[in-house]
Design a protein around this nucleic acid. Structure first.
Lengths: 155, 155
DNA sequence: ATCCTAAATAAGTTTATTCTTATTTAGAAT
DNA sequence: ATTCTAAATAAGAATAAACTTATTTAGGAT
């Protein structure tokens, strides 16, 4: 919950604590919804006008690779969203309007992962998105798969 | 297995059959590995030098949205790969070298999807990637998360 | 066979993301 | 406190992916 936890995790993995990294973690923690990379960048620029977008992308990817942050692949033409990963869970993503919903709990259990272990693969995280159509888009399904508005989200 | 099946599926969903779409399906079916969008584009250009990359991207997305093709999100800095979706399965993706392995079967069952249905969400597909470190990258784990070579794949 | 219309495409533009390189800095060692 | 070095950053270039618009075309209707 606390940002200190994330800082500590970074240190434990041998990464340096920079003002930029603090700002990114702060922005993620304060955001009401899972923000896009561009939104995080915009937010941080208010206080740190000189932060580069590359730094934001790079660190979001790092946090996601470390399993501290979850990247939600929204498909469609939507860009990914990032959310602080507590508790771990998965998402429903609408292919038409791009909205998404959080599912409680995790659909992948230890048993699912045994094949990976047998191959000698060390799993440190996973991403699962279920794609389909939300309630309000279902009726208009017939209109092809063109996306319309941006849709509203749910934390 | 046959390309005709994919053509038929497109027709059933109300999409037109264009030479470009035939070429994309052909290229996917003939590829020994799951190709990247750019690789498909390059291959098709040999016969159809005038096909635009946009058409390739657009149709790969369409096929993925229809569940006929599976898009593998390789993370890292690798671009996605696309494979013809028979039989449906999931992947192990190495965060270090970008290689991937196919898992047999599907880890998501009907029971997993009940929450989605309760929300009135119609699931037409899903993507699940397990991220971690392959056997040969495991030892070098300590070197941070920088990616090195491109790694070899497995169909 | 010809016509018609929505869908699909190509071309060019725009945006998002990643890469490259020179510079700066966090944090360890002195 | 100062020095040192690998890691991190900023800036700008390069690439990937998506959008916009005018044109073409698949496939149904005539």
């Amino acid at each position: 919950m606390s940002n200190k936890f994330f800082i500590q995790q970074l240190k434990q993995n041998g990464y340096k604590i920079t003002p930029q990294r603090r700002a990114i973690i702060e922005a993620l923690a304060e955001a009401p919804l899972a923000p896009k990379a561009s939104e995080i960048w915009e937010k941080i620029r208010q206080k740190h006008p000189d932060i580069s977008p590359d730094t934001v992308y790079r660190n979001l990817t790092l946090l996601a690779d470390l399993g501290m942050v979850q990247q939600i692949y929204l498909r469609s033409k939507e860009t990914s969203r990032f959310e602080i990963n507590i508790p771990h869970h998965h998402h429903l993503v609408c292919l038409k309007c791009g909205c998404y919903y959080c599912l409680e709990g995790c659909l992948v259990n230890e048993q699912n992962l045994k094949a990976a272990k047998q191959k000698g693969f060390t799993v440190i995280g996973h991403a699962l998105e279920l794609y389909g159509y939300c309630l309000s888009c279902k009726e208009v399904r017939g209109e092809g798969l063109k996306r319309e508005g941006k849709g509203e989200n749910e934390s």
